[in-house]
């Protein structure tokens, strides 16, 4: 087990969540849906806390929704949300998080590769004081070339760029305090980076090893192209993390190459061979470019300052125990 936060989770009294929501987005998982729901119920019911299983059908084209609706008769804790079409995992997850009512929220994939029997262990760590508990598929049961190697590279990069010492960002099996996720608004493909997004809020993140099984039914929805998208999104999120705090400073930094070019061209004009036309053109262009960056920075400041209470400013609220 590793703790990724800068702060010590034991520094404040642990607050055990009094109810649990398990949120699972599913897409074309008709064979897995029933064993998944029953597995979750079997794992959580013995904990003797009120719970619900929120399954979001992300516009499945097979009989997933029919299977889930049939299960409602025998599983009173089940809530099924049917989306109008396939909106993708992030939005399906957001739909589930928006509906989840538990004080603790557990997320996992619908393909049965995550093991619901790990849920109680995640909840234990939340009760001990963590805000986010992330699963680590140490013994991952996936194809080496298409999944494990790209994932290993991606995780190394994420650790290097963000400084968050989590081995397996891609593991969907995670537990959160609701107060953490209710401050997050997911769009695009951000579901992979929830742990990173919670860091600026001051969340205590822990990681524990979890089981991982090979897929036995249904088909994987991802290919290797996902790796490139993950990298692009990681870059975007890191940029956002930097820029949303002090946009003017960062936009000015982005404009600094123009300033350098302007200075270099000016020096060339002064010390060069006497031809002034090209250096003068560069001075004008560089100066204009630098000015444009400054103005965009001001515009960014305007956007940030007029955007109301963002996640950062709400951090203090969710830190209060309830």
């Amino acid at each position: 087990m590793s703790t990724a936060s800068q702060r010590d989770a034991s520094a404040r009294p642990p607050v055990a969540p009094r109810s649990v929501s398990v949120v699972v987005p599913v897409y074309d998982e008709q064979e897995n849906a029933e064993p998944l729901v029953r597995g979750i119920v079997e794992a959580v019911r013995p904990l003797d806390v009120p719970f619900e299983v929120v399954v979001v059908d992300d516009g499945s084209s097979d009989d997933t929704l029919t299977v889930l609706r049939r299960l409602l008769e025998s599983v009173p804790e089940l809530v099924v949300i049917a989306l109008r079409r396939n909106f993708g995992q992030t939005l399906a997850l957001q739909a589930g998080l928006d509906r989840a009512r538990g004080e603790a929220i557990v997320t996992l994939d619908g393909d049965l590769q995550n093991d619901p029997r790990d849920i109680p262990r995640l909840l234990e760590r939340l009760a001990a004081g963590a805000d986010v508990v992330s699963g680590w598929r140490k013994d991952r049961q996936d194809a080496v070339v298409l999944r494990k190697i790209p994932s290993w590279i991606a995780n190394r990069l994420i650790r290097g760029v963000t400084g968050i010492q989590i081995h397996d960002q891609g593991c969907s099996l995670k537990a959160y305090r609701k107060s953490v996720v209710q401050n997050l608004d997911l769009y695009a493909d951000m579901h992979r980076f929830i742990a990173i997004l919670t860091m600026p809020l001051g969340a205590t993140i822990e990681e524990i090893e979890v089981r991982h099984h090979p897929r036995t039914a249904g088909e994987s929805k991802y290919g290797i192209s996902r790796t490139f998208k993950v990298m692009a999104d990681l870059f975007t999120i890191q940029m956002l993390t930097w820029f949303r705090e002090r946009p003017m400073r960062w936009f000015t930094l982005l404009g600094s190459p123009f300033l350098l070019l302007t200075v270099a061209a000016g020096l060339l004009a002064l010390l060069g061979d006497g031809n002034m036309v090209v250096p003068a053109a560069i001075v004008v262009m560089g100066g204009t470019g630098f000015l444009a960056c400054l103005l965009l920075g001001l515009l960014a400041e305007f956007v940030v300052s007029t955007s109301g209470p963002g996640p950062k400013r709400m951090a203090h609220e969710w830190r209060e125990d309830s």
């Binding site: 089940l78 809530v79 099924v80 949300i81 049917a82 989306l83 909106f87 939005l91 739909a95």
Partner: peptide, 10 residues
């Protein structure tokens, strides 16, 4: 951005 068709629950 998501749109819900229906919520089924007990």
């Amino acid at each position: 951005d998501y749109r819900i068709t229906a919520v089924y629950e007990s």
